[in-house]
Simulated scan of single mutants.
Amino acid sequence: MRKFEVTAVTGTATATAYSPYLSGYIESIEYVKDGSIPYADGVDFTITSEATGESILALTDQNASVVKRPRAATHSVAGVAAVYASGGTAVNDRIALSRDRVKVAIAQGGNGKSGKFIITVDDGR
């Protein structure tokens, strides 16, 4: 497992920040609320893969630090959604990235505010 930290500082209530290039399965993403100049309550985060734009995590109206373990829906070889039973719950699995960066977009964060995101990746080492 490896951890990558991304700090995003808002200009006019928005910001975009990127992780270093990484490869592996996303295990978790932790938002750490800054102790001095935190984002405004109700901040929104949109976290995606830079290369493909694949959605990794989208959180709205956040007020506190949080840890999330995002997963994506899977599909059969025919491209049909994989479910546990006919018409049942989707089968989810970890999100994989290959030499890609995680893009963190902030909205409604307040001006000149800061937050940190810790991305934990299982890189198979």
Results as ranks from 00 to 15, higher is better:
residue 13 A to W: 05
residue 15 A to G: 04
residue 99 R to N: 14
residue 103 K to E: 08
residue 109 G to V: 01
residue 82 A to H: 07
residue 114 S to Q: 10
residue 20 P to M: 10
residue 111 N to R: 06
residue 15 A to R: 02
residue 9 V to G: 01
residue 36 S to Q: 15
residue 114 S to H: 01
residue 49 S to E: 11
residue 54 E to W: 09
residue 102 V to Y: 00
residue 67 V to N: 09
residue 103 K to C: 06
residue 122 D to P: 00
residue 98 S to E: 09
residue 75 H to C: 06
residue 81 A to K: 14
residue 97 L to H: 01
residue 46 T to P: 06
residue 116 K to G: 01
residue 101 R to P: 05
residue 97 L to A: 03
residue 29 I to Y: 01
residue 25 Y to C: 08
residue 14 T to V: 10
residue 88 G to P: 00
residue 19 S to C: 05
residue 41 D to G: 15
residue 50 E to L: 15
residue 96 A to N: 09
residue 2 R to V: 07
residue 93 D to Q: 12
residue 2 R to M: 06
residue 62 Q to T: 13
residue 7 T to V: 12
residue 79 G to S: 08
residue 107 A to I: 02
residue 26 I to M: 06
residue 103 K to D: 03
residue 73 A to S: 11
residue 31 Y to A: 03
residue 92 N to G: 04
residue 103 K to N: 04
residue 77 V to Y: 10
residue 98 S to K: 08
residue 36 S to I: 12
residue 21 Y to I: 05
residue 22 L to K: 03
residue 107 A to F: 00
residue 32 V to D: 03
residue 61 D to M: 11
residue 51 A to Q: 14
residue 64 A to F: 13
residue 36 S to N: 15
residue 46 T to C: 12
residue 7 T to P: 00
residue 92 N to P: 01
residue 28 S to C: 10
residue 70 P to E: 04
residue 60 T to W: 07
residue 18 Y to M: 08
residue 91 V to Y: 03
residue 89 T to K: 12
residue 24 G to R: 04
residue 35 G to Q: 15
residue 116 K to T: 11
residue 116 K to I: 05
residue 94 R to K: 14
